[in-house]
């Protein structure tokens, strides 16, 4: 391929680039998903439910009579149960285990 030499514009005379509108988007524009919750009233003795298989926080939970709680991860569809007094299942947080965001 032959690159145009004679037809090239005088790029060296065009002055600095106009950086307007080329800067990275503001943080507000980058943020998505749910807004940060009000932390008032939160107690540190709570366990935050996190999928043991992938680490995601988007979880559906139901109470099962006599069996504690049943969980289903909305990201990788992993299902597990837990009842008070039992150990929380070993949890791995890894993006490779997430099938969707």
């Amino acid at each position: 391929m032959v690159l145009p030499v004679d037809a090239a514009p005088s790029w060296w005379n065009q002055g600095p680039h106009d950086a307007t509108n080329r800067r990275p988007a503001s943080r507000a524009a980058r943020q998505s998903g749910p807004a940060a919750p009000d932390m008032a009233g939160y107690r540190r003795s709570a366990r935050i439910v996190q999928c043991p298989r992938c680490g995601a926080f988007r979880i559906d939970v139901t109470h099962v009579d006599g069996a504690g709680y049943a969980f289903r991860c909305r990201v990788d569809d992993h299902e597990w149960t837990w009842r008070s007094g039992a150990e929380w299942p070993a949890t791995v947080v890894a993006s490779r285990r997430r099938t969707t965001t």
Binding site: E87, A94, S95
Partner: peptide, 28 residues
Amino acid sequence: SRSTCFALEKLGSSPLEWEDAAAFRDGS
């Protein structure tokens, strides 16, 4: 122990490109 793991990918990457990993096993 009672553990929680938060993570965020590098700005400009997608969440599935977060290249750290973590794991915990809470118990007595």
